[in-house]
């Protein structure tokens, strides 16, 4: 029996789909069987991030309405052994599915897979309720900015009322240069405010854009910072004890000397 994990955020565009695709791929690289469910009905994107958009025949709504069998809607990713996508319907709206139907779908999927990852839509409405309906655990993605952290806090409260009271936090798009000069909240700041366990920190990395262009999740490339961060996150989910990457917030002594001598290229004006 597998585990159903929902990836959610409240605020849109903070990296839920990117996170789902990369954790899913990393778990598959670790030899686990994984299915990623796109719960963003009407605005599906997980298919293009994974590069599987041309292989979709049926979708999630077809399954819950009985138009096809569960197996027929699953898109197998040929690059990996046991990795599948359950695409969202693109031409329907989110009311086409009920939380009860999602719960049944999740239960059916976790009989067959080690991990069922649900990519939640933004917002706190019907789509969110569908996405969390069948989940055993939740991951909250945020970026270290005021509005995203505020929405994450709201979502953490809503998860608790949906029996998902110990969500794990991913801080995405952290910029070390901004953190160093005190212009972005660091890991401790964000943690202190949200007060939930930290699963991982993903740096802002242009390789995400490049890999999304290609339809190949960034974890495939071990040389990228973001790729390494997502691999570590997957390993932590599997119970490995891997320290959060160390980001030195304080300027080093050398930085200070450079600044004193006017040699710092990141100097504020």
């Amino acid at each position: 029996m597998g585990e159903v994990i929902v990836i959610t955020s409240g605020k849109g565009g903070v990296g839920k789909t990117t996170t789902t695709a990369n954790i899913g791929t990393a778990l598959a690289l670790e030899g686990k069987s994984v299915v990623m469910v796109d719960a963003d009905i009407g605005l599906r994107n997980l298919d293009v991030v994974l590069g599987l958009e041309n292989r979709i025949v049926y979708d999630l709504v077809d399954v819950v309405e009985g138009t096809c069998r569960l197996k027929q809607a699953l898109v197998r990713d040929k690059r990996f052994d046991k990795m599948y996508l359950m695409p969202a319907a693109q031409t329907r709206d989110k009311n086409a599915v009920s939380p009860e139907q999602m719960q049944k779908l999740c239960n059916d999927l976790k009989e067959q897979f080690d991990f069922v990852l649900i990519d939640s839509p933004a917002g706190i409405e019907h789509g969110f309720k569908n996405a969390v309906a069948g989940a055993d655990r939740a991951i909250v993605v945020t970026v270290p900015e005021v509005s995203a952290v505020r929405d994450a806090d709201r979502i953490i409260g809503m998860l608790a009322t949906n029996d998902l009271s110990n969500p794990l936090l991913i801080i995405n798009r952290l910029r070390v240069d901004l953190v160093k000069r005190g212009d972005m909240m660091n890991i401790d700041d964000t943690n202190e405010i949200l007060g939930i366990d930290l699963l991982g920190v993903v740096p802002d990395d242009e390789n995400i854009v490049i890999s999304t262009n290609r339809g190949e999740p960034v974890v495939i490339d071990e040389d990228t910072m973001a790729g390494r961060a997502f691999r570590n996150i997957a390993k932590r989910l599997l119970g490995e004890d891997i320290p959060i990457m160390d980001l030195d917030e304080e300027d080093t002594f050398l930085d200070k000397i450079k600044r004193l001598l006017g040699m710092d290229k990141n100097k504020k004006h």
Partner: peptide, 12 residues
């Protein structure tokens, strides 16, 4: 007066 401290106070 780092902007991240302002952000943190406002958030709290």
């Amino acid at each position: 007066n780092k902007s991240k401290d302002i952000a943190k106070e406002r958030l709290k």
